[in-house]
Write a protein that binds this DNA or RNA. Structure first.
Length: 816
DNA sequence: AGCACGCCGACT
DNA sequence: GTCGGCGTGCTC
């Protein structure tokens, strides 16, 4: 009998691949274990075992695997089932899910290593120039990596040179696989065994220590030893306040020895438990959630900002933790959750682990292992969307905070999954409970609650007598007419800022655009500089004095003359955060002004530094983009200004009004503090716009009703499922023809769906590739599964047409 | 997705 | 003649 395994390779390929194994290997291997397999001519991939069987493939000769990597599966059966669901639902390959699901350090790199055959005398006259050059390099250094060869020959295509040397047996080749994960080693200190006996110890203390510093070091050692935990060298030196030189001296004299242990990077200080002071209202809400969980697996918690949502979460987590269950706490963007992590660790100490892409690979691997082994150290995982892929064993509670956030939906690369929706499916597999929370729920979730598919709990009272802020709308047209305006700032806004400053309070200003101004225009001929590779105008940055593309990052120096007519009358149009910052400095020259957007929060701690500066009240005004809206709690902000609400209302997106409502409400929620009502000023040219009115009246219901009507009428979610197909190619006509062909094919072959387009997106060229969009809508009550299969079929036919092969199709299910 | 292979035009 | 550009096909 022959033995085979089917494996998933980390590529975007639709099928699994079959390899041959020995009987012993077959017995040992289980689905979820990693194996290294040869793939194609010279690649090695870390594949994951999907299935075992005895069916000999008819059409090809299976290769053998190279090695087994794991002793135990690193993916659980539930995970593999979950991967399959993601691949089916979001129409992508298992390989793409596999790649997204594991920390990339688990996907071992294959590295080709070339070594010199030292037993051979080489006839140099038979070598070409390149071959000779490479041979010389080998004589210097007998082992070379592939990329080193590329450097030596100073070109990319080096295979033929290597091949030639391989043929002549001058060099040989071996695959070298290495784990990327290295545990961090920490040096610990122990007294040398010479001093185990008390006699000698006394002798040491009395006679052998020559200096005060040496004595201090040894005494501190004994002091720390009393705690009965390993003593880290670093800690000892710090506590004793001596330098490393003094220690190494004692080490040489064989008084101390050093040993190393692997240290977990992910460590927090011990918990200090604090009882939460619950208002009656909160107590009742908690009760309501628990009652709702008895009937519904998913419950929506609609809680206004500042109502003590987090305390509610903590209580629920406490219960799960007491029962040894695992908890997943999903958050939209981890950079903004430092405050949350601090609060949870205060209650649960080391039981809390954080999992997100901003942490290092090694930290991710550690959390993964902790979850896999169901250790205490990761009973509660706070994480961004990728943490739904962790290898949970006993997951019983999932909390999804700020559930309406669009960043839960992954856009690129595949799998283009929605973490909220995926988490709900995952919960079903575990029979776990899900709490989705928001102050401004997504229409989808609210509708689910409305239809009683989800349970629903409301908490509409703020925690500590903080009233909801007063919202004032300023009509910019009117203000301009009456000359009640100073640049971009209405007099009302300036007055309110002055009042806040007078009271020693802080101000947040929101503007949806970064840079100085999004358009540079020639006043003579109207020419606007565009990105050379994308169909967008370049954003002007005054500080750096350059123009930058927000799609591909291309920059060019600020022109002094118009490229088209050489006029030097260039003017900026439109408003970005940088320009507001500048204008503020002229109006309030002695106030501290800071800016928070993608451009100022680069680097690991830039964000924290800004937040800390603001918290410590070193900053009077913070100008920022959406980032300001995301769950930051400042206790001294009494005024929030929205520079121009219209930019939110004119976005070409069926969710624009919903998003505008959510964003404005969230930003507004930053205003107000204990015992003082906050103020929000919204500047707009459309003061009577429904959405603006709904925000000022804090009327979610009205927004919900209006938008649901629109969604039903124009056939959008939650009544219809959306699948967005994007076609991309360097040739405009080819892209368009392919899109036309596909749209026609979809229309004629699939009943029950609506096909819109093809159309060009508002930015129709990115990085020199043209884009066409087809939007497929299907009624929510039709079986999505078979319709998706038909769509896939159409795309496959497109791929099989010669001229359209090079056109890339991206599928985005539940497009956001 | 990578990556090799093969075909074609552009240069030492 | 070789180099490198791009289109095509394959990966167990």
């Amino acid at each position: 009998m022959d033995y085979f395994i089917d494996v998933v390779v980390p590529l975007s390929l639709a099928t699994t691949f079959t390899y041959k194994v020995s009987q012993a290997e077959h017995q040992f291997l289980q689905p979820g274990m990693r194996v290294a397999v040869p793939f194609g001519k010279r690649l090695v991939y870390t594949a994951i075992v999907w299935a075992k069987h005895h069916e000999t493939p008819a059409l090809y000769e299976p290769k053998d695997i190279l090695t087994i990597i794991d002793e135990q599966p690193i993916a659980t059966p539930i995970q593999l089932e979950f991967w399959q669901w993601i691949a089916n639902y979001y129409m992508c390959s298992l390989g793409e899910v596999y790649k997204a699901a594991l920390p990339s350090a688990f996907l071992l790199e294959s590295e080709t290593i070339l070594s010199l055959n030292t037993h051979l005398t080489v006839d140099l006259s038979t070598l070409t120039d390149d071959e000779y050059l490479l041979f010389e390099a080998f004589e210097q250094q007998p082992i070379l990596r592939f990329d080193e060869v590329q450097n030596i020959l100073n070109k990319k295509k080096v295979f033929h040179v290597i091949d030639a040397l391989l043929q002549k047996e001058i060099i040989y080749l071996n695959q070298h696989i290495h784990e990327k994960y290295k545990p961090k080693l920490v040096k610990y200190v122990a007294l040398h065994e010479n001093y185990k006996e008390e006699q000698k110890l006394i002798h040491l203390l009395d006679h052998q220590l020559k200096t005060e510093k040496q004595r201090a070091l040894v005494l501190k050692y004994f002091q720390l030893q009393a705690k009965n935990t390993p003593i880290a060298l670093k800690e000892l030196l710090k506590e004793a306040e001596v330098s490393a030189a003094i220690f190494s001296n004692l080490e040489k004299k064989e008084i101390f020895t050093v040993y190393t242990l692997a240290e977990d990077r992910v460590q927090f200080n011990d918990a200090f438990l604090d009882d939460i002071d619950f208002t009656q209202k909160q107590q009742a809400t908690l009760q309501n959630i628990q009652t709702s969980f008895q009937k519904h697996d998913v419950t929506l918690l609609n809680a206004v900002t500042g109502s003590g949502k987090t305390e509610m979460y903590i209580e629920l987590i406490k219960e799960a933790v007491q029962n040894q269950q695992q908890v997943l706490f999903l958050v939209p963007e981890i950079g903004l959750t430092t405050q949350l992590v601090q609060r949870l660790t205060a209650y649960f100490g080391n039981k809390v682990a954080v999992y997100n892409s901003k942490y290092s690979e090694n930290e991710r691997v550690e959390v993964y292992h902790h979850v896999l082994n169901h250790t205490e150290n990761a009973q509660i995982v706070i994480g961004s969307r990728s943490s739904v892929f962790l290898p949970f064993k006993n997951l019983q509670l999932i909390i999804i905070d700020e559930e309406h956030e669009a960043s839960y939906k992954q856009a690129d690369p595949a799998p283009r999954f929605h973490a909220r929706d995926a988490a709900i499916v995952l919960a079903k597999m575990f029979k776990a409970k899900v709490l989705v929370g928001s102050a401004t729920p997504s229409l989808e979730s609210y509708y689910n609650a409305y239809q009683q598919k989800y349970g629903y709990v409301e908490l509409n009272q703020r925690f500590t007598n903080v009233q909801l802020p007063e919202v004032v709308v300023v009509d910019l047209k009117e203000a301009r007419k009456k000359k009640e305006i100073n640049g971009f700032f209405s007099i009302k806004l300036i007055d309110a800022m002055n009042e806040a400053f007078y009271n020693g309070e802080q101000v947040l200003l929101f503007q949806n655009r970064r840079g100085f101004s999004p358009v540079l225009e020639c006043l003579t001929c109207g020419h606007v500089p565009h990105c050379t590779m994308c169909d967008v105008s370049l954003t002007y940055y005054k500080r750096q004095n350059y123009l930058k593309c927000h799609y591909c990052g291309y920059t060019m120096a600020m022109p002094t003359k118009c490229h088209s007519c050489h006029s030097n009358e260039l003017s900026t149009k439109g408003l970005g955060t940088e320009q507001i910052e500048d204008a503020l400095r002229t109006i309030f020259p002695n106030k501290n002004i800071a800016r928070m957007d993608q451009d100022t929060t680069r680097g690991k701690f830039a964000f924290e530094r800004l937040i800390d500066g603001f918290k410590n009240r070193e900053i009077d005004v913070m100008v920022g983009t959406q980032m300001l809206a995301k769950g930051l709690d400042f206790d001294n902000v009494t005024l929030v200004g929205i520079m121009n609400a219209d930019s939110l209302l004119t976005l070409p997106d069926f969710r624009a009004y919903e998003r505008a409502y959510q964003l404005l409400t969230q930003v507004a929620g930053r205003s107000g503090r204990k015992n003082k009502q906050g103020k929000v000023i919204i500047q707009t040219y459309n003061p009577y716009h429904n959405t603006i009115q709904q925000v000022t009246q804090n009327n979610y219901q009205a927004m919900f009703k209006e938008q649901m009507y629109e969604r039903l009428h124009f056939k959008y979610p939650p009544f219809y499922r959306l699948i967005r197909l994007q076609l991309k190619h360097t040739n405009f006509d080819k892209t368009k023809d392919a899109a036309q062909w596909l749209a026609t094919n979809l229309r004629s072959n699939i009943a029950d769906i609506l096909v819109l387009g093809p159309q060009e997106p508002s930015v129709n060229r990115i990085r020199n590739k043209y884009i066409q969009i087809i939007l497929v809508k299907m009624p929510i009550n039709k079986s999505a599964h078979s319709l998706k299969a038909s769509i896939q079929k159409s795309i496959n036919s497109l791929d099989s047409i010669g001229t359209f092969k090079a056109v890339r199709t991206k599928i985005n299910v539940d497009f956001y």
